[in-house]
């Protein structure tokens, strides 16, 4: 059983709480992504699960055991590090075999397992090479193979793609997803890249300042953000937020439409949007501008498909823009927390 539970997990470094009371359950076989800006505590949680850091308080449960007192090797986990952490002086074969040797696995069994793991990841022809002779993508596969041979109950991946260039990252991301689908092992994946998180995760845990902000499927996180942090952390450009008395009103740039493009017969919210700058991105355009009646300097964005030719919009002009009421979210101004939808209807 590869279920992982964090209970009131807390970690202090000096006077700073890097992880501040996190409660979280990762289900068996699930691909869970920890997402947050750097310094949000996501890697620290992962390292506590691995046993590389001791929690200041709280429990970590793997399977059905509290593992706080267990060393990393007894936790049934395997980890892939940022930069992979391959042993530079050992051949690929010996890198993969290393965790088996420490367990005293018989030689023939090691041989078999290394061959097995290498064939799953397609690196059989690289076995006699040193890590430095491998490309970034190949190193990642070696790191995955080294994690795989232990047949762990949980895989922990700490920003494994951050050392790859953008193009390789896309293919490596697919490989990881395929790999996890194949082995069906519980996987926890740490990243600060929302595209990775959305693409990979069965569920995403969004963290900020050591606190868990929201856990949910990618669409839940995107469509129903729990607070203004999650709303603005996901999406590029992020959700537009407007002050409305005691409330904050939010809507996504793709739902912010010129009134001619809005569905007919809907009583939608209306805004006077002054377009300041238009960014052409090929398949779409991003409009940057001001909304009448909002505080100075706050810039709002609208996304428009490049295929839409009418109406023609120009920089410097003001246009009537609208948002469909179902796409409006409301947040409490003081706490930033999302308000229940029931309250929305009264406002719209």
């Amino acid at each position: 059983m590869g279920q992982v539970i964090a209970r009131r997990l807390r970690k202090e470094f000096g006077e700073v709480a890097a992880v501040d009371g996190v409660d979280l359950e990762v289900r068996d076989g699930e691909f869970m992504v920890f997402l947050g800006p750097s310094g949000c505590g996501k890697t620290t949680i992962l390292r506590m699960i691995a046993g590389l850091e001791q929690p200041s308080s709280g429990d970590i449960v793997i399977g059905n055991r509290v593992v706080n007192a267990l060393p990393p090797r007894s936790r049934g986990i395997a980890m892939v590090f940022q930069g992979y952490g391959l042993y530079p002086h050992l051949k690929v074969r010996d890198n993969i075999a290393f965790p088996l040797r420490t367990q005293g696995t018989p030689r023939e069994a090691i041989e078999k397992k290394v061959t097995w793991a290498a064939s799953i990841l397609g690196i059989t022809r690289l076995l006699e090479r040193k890590p430095r002779q491998l490309s970034g993508g190949e190193q990642q596969r070696v790191a995955l193979a080294r994690a795989l041979v232990r047949e762990p109950t949980v895989f922990l991946l700490d920003e494994p793609l951050s050392n790859l260039d953008a193009k390789l990252r896309t293919s490596a991301r697919n490989e990881i997803k395929e790999f996890q689908r194949g082995v069906r092992t519980t996987t926890i994946y740490v990243t600060h890249d929302q595209v990775e998180a959305m693409g990979l995760g069965d569920r995403i845990a969004v963290l900020e300042h050591g606190k868990l902000r929201q856990v949910g499927t990618p669409s839940q996180i995107y469509e129903d953000p729990a607070d203004t942090f999650v709303a603005t952390f996901l999406g590029a450009p992020p959700m537009n937020l407007l002050e409305r008395g005691e409330l904050i009103e939010g809507f996504r740039p793709e739902n912010f439409l010129h009134q001619d493009l809005q569905q007919k017969g809907i009583q939608s919210a209306r805004y006077a949007f002054t377009v300041q700058r238009i960014e052409y991105l090929g398949n779409e355009r991003i409009l940057y501008g001001l909304i009448d009646g909002q505080r100075n300097g706050a810039e709002y964005t609208a996304r428009m498909s490049s295929h839409v030719s009418e109406p023609v919009l120009r920089e410097g002009e003001t246009y009537p823009f609208t948002v469909h009421p179902k796409n409006l979210k409301y947040f409490d101004k003081s706490t930033g927390k999302r308000l229940p939808p029931a309250r929305n209807e009264g406002r719209a």
Binding site: G51, L52, G83, L86, F98, P99, Q103, R150
Partner: peptide, 17 residues
Amino acid sequence: PKTIIDASYVDGAGYWR
């Protein structure tokens, strides 16, 4: 590199190894 040391902990190496 610290990741190599961390990796050796996770891989179950004791002090001597």
